[in-house]
Amino acid sequence: MDNFWEYLQNLTDAQSIISLGFYFLLIVVFAETGLFFGFFLPGDYLLFMSGLLCSSSRLNVSIYTLIFSLIAAGVLGNYTGYWFGYRTGPKLFSKNNSIFFKQRYVKLAEDFYTKYGGMALVLGRFFPIIRTFAPIFAGVVKVDLKKFTLYNIIGSVAWVNTFTLTGYFLGRKYPQIKDYMEYIIIGLIVITTIPLVIAFIKQMVTKRSVKELK
């Protein structure tokens, strides 16, 4: 348990994050929202942290530059994911599982998209894994590029502003919040993971029901 807390403390150390640099934040957001192997990256956490660090001037950019740049990275990431899905098409569904790719992630994105349609590209921004694979699946099914662009921009604006500005304004109002980052991160993990756990359980129940019917 002590090792776990030590890991969280290192992960939330402001100096460590700053040493990675502003452009690292943009690369992470781009990768998580467009590259299929980026699903494990902590996008929500880094958005929140970037806003928090910006509020105390420990991240040497203005909040306006930060927000605009993160939105742009998210939009470009989704375009990359769409292009990848468009080019690979159905082949993606026959790709073998690996450490960086799981078929169940594609199926999860497919079910999410089937349920919410184009809005999956907006709502999916707030859920790990879905955030990465929803634009890829949109490319697989060849969603109209104009519609995809609209949802892409709306989703990126909503996601970035929600987490980054939350961190920014909390940091301005409660400067001491940095002393409780371990608990905040655990809260973020729990909040963003619960919907995915529910989705996986529903998938398992549905598969079991289908097997029983057969």
Rank of each mutant, 00 (worst) to 15 (best):
131 R>Q: 07
161 N>F: 09
106 V>F: 09
56 S>G: 10
80 T>P: 08
8 L>M: 14
56 S>N: 10
171 G>Q: 01
183 Y>M: 10
135 P>E: 02
60 N>S: 13
206 T>K: 13
178 K>Q: 15
71 I>F: 06
96 N>I: 11
52 L>T: 02
60 N>C: 04
45 Y>M: 12
67 I>A: 04
51 G>T: 04
166 T>N: 08
38 G>Y: 01
185 I>A: 09
155 G>D: 00
15 Q>D: 14
2 D>K: 14
132 T>S: 05
164 T>P: 03
152 N>P: 01
61 V>S: 05
160 V>P: 00
150 L>W: 09
115 K>Y: 04
17 I>N: 00
150 L>Y: 12
124 G>C: 05
190 V>I: 14
131 R>Y: 07
148 F>H: 01
87 R>W: 05
11 L>E: 07
83 W>Y: 14
91 K>C: 06
201 I>N: 13
146 K>F: 13
175 P>Q: 07
10 N>L: 11
57 S>L: 13
66 L>R: 00
178 K>G: 11
10 N>C: 01
167 G>M: 01
58 R>H: 13
188 L>F: 15
16 S>P: 03
41 L>N: 02
44 D>V: 12
91 K>Q: 13
41 L>K: 03
171 G>S: 05
82 Y>W: 04
204 M>I: 15
56 S>A: 14
124 G>V: 06
41 L>W: 01
110 E>R: 10
15 Q>E: 14
112 F>V: 06
160 V>A: 06
80 T>D: 06
48 F>Q: 03
58 R>C: 07
112 F>G: 02
78 N>Y: 09
54 C>M: 08
125 R>K: 11
80 T>N: 10
92 L>Q: 04
4 F>K: 08
213 L>H: 10
1 M>S: 12
146 K>V: 12
169 F>Y: 15
102 K>L: 10
60 N>E: 14
23 Y>I: 12
110 E>S: 13
30 F>W: 06
106 V>K: 06
110 E>L: 08
171 G>P: 03
11 L>K: 06
35 L>P: 00
170 L>F: 15
111 D>T: 08
25 L>F: 08
126 F>S: 09
109 A>N: 03
21 G>W: 07
212 E>F: 11
168 Y>T: 03
201 I>R: 14
21 G>F: 03
192 T>Y: 02
71 I>K: 08
109 A>C: 06
203 Q>K: 12
130 I>G: 00
50 S>T: 05
